[in-house]
C-alpha cells in the first residue's frame, strides 16, 4: 500500500507527513505526535474519551482517518490553556469536582466547549442531551453538568 502525503494543522502547528492511509487521527495524535491528552476509551465511537475540536465542533478521533483531514485543523486538550492559565471550562471542572479518575475528562471538556460554541447558555436538559456521546464511569454526571454550567458562564463573561 502506498503511503500518502498529508498536511494537517494540530494546535496551530503545521505538519506535513507521509502516513499509511489507515492511520486513525487518535493514533497519529498519541503515537506520532506524543499528544496523549486525548484518550482511547472504547475505540468504537461510543464513549467520547477521544474527542477533539474540528471547526469548533467535537469529533471522535478514534473514528476518523488522518487522510480525511488533509489541509484541515484540529485542536486537542493540550492547547486549551493559555499563558499557563487553564481554559475557563477546565477551571470549572476543577472547581466543581467534575472529575474523579479523569479518564473521560478531556473528551468531556472538548464536548462541552463544542456545545458552548453552538449555544452559549444551554439549559441543564440541553447539556445532558449534548453529552449523549460522552460516557463517564465515575461521577454520575451531576458534577459534570454543574461544571459545564459554570464553564459556560465564565466563557460568556470572558467573551
Amino acid at each position: 500500500m502506498h503511503e500518502i502525503s498529508i498536511k494537517i494543522t494540530i494546535n496551530e502547528k503545521n505538519y506535513e507527513k507521509s502516513i499509511l492511509p489507515n492511520t486513525l487521527l487518535i493514533d497519529f495524535l498519541r503515537e506520532e505526535l506524543g499528544l496523549t491528552g486525548t484518550h482511547v476509551g472504547c475505540d468504537t465511537s461510543q464513549c467520547g474519551a477521544c474527542m477533539v475540536l474540528h471547526n469548533n465542533e467535537a469529533l471522535k478521533a478514534c473514528s476518523i482517518l488522518v487522510a480525511q483531514l488533509n489541509n484541515q485543523e484540529i485542536t486537542t486538550i493540550e492547547h486549551l490553556q493559555k499563558d499557563n492559565k487553564l481554559h475557563p471550562m477546565q477551571n470549572a471542572f476543577r472547581n466543581n469536582h467534575g472529575l474523579q479518575c479523569g479518564f473521560c475528562t478531556p473528551g468531556m471538556i472538548m464536548s462541552a466547549i463544542s456545545l458552548i460554541n453552538e449555544n452559549n447558555s444551554p439549559t441543564e436538559e440541553e447539556i445532558r442531551k449534548h453529552l449523549e456521546g460522552n460516557l463517564c464511569r465515575c461521577t454520575g454526571y451531576q458534577n459534570i453538568v454543574k461544571s459545564i454550567e459554570e464553564g459556560a458562564k465564565d466563557m460568556r463573561e470572558k467573551g
Binding site: A58, S63, E132
Partner: peptide, 9 residues
Amino acid sequence: IGDPAVRKM
C-alpha cells in the same frame, strides 16, 4: 441520530 459527534460526520 446517535450523538452530536456522530451527527457531525
